[in-house]
Amino acid sequence: MKKGILFLSVILLCYACSVAPQKIEFGKDVCSYCDMAIVDRVHAAEVVTNKGKAFKFDAIECLIHHLTEKNETDMAFVLVTDFLNPEVFINATEAQYLISEKIKSPMGANLTAFSSKENAAYKNETFNNWKKIKEIIRKNTYLNNK
């Protein structure tokens, strides 16, 4: 019995420390940057620090603003949602980014991530990589992105 409890607590301890992406509870979790409830399943984003603490975001623009204040190398995971696969995270550095009024994002930047730029519906749009999109978003604060 005692051994069982010990075993269980060891497992719980390991679980608590593991550095892994966390699932977003839509409608319950709140964006770490802007305080809004996360409800949009195609724009949610997340970072997990090397220590295993997860920060969840309702939009990729919030993730980018959050990273402005942090060091990106301290992050074990930087994740964004693939627009074509709701609730599926992809690596932020590997994603392609689109700014288009056709797809509105929760914080007004109209920024969306795709796993690749090869897709029929947005063939003629300009996509940006992670490095470029960070520069574009950081030029604008929320108040003047009109």
Partner: peptide, 8 residues
Amino acid sequence: RYGLHFMF
């Protein structure tokens, strides 16, 4: 989420 929501 919100009863009423203003953004920008």
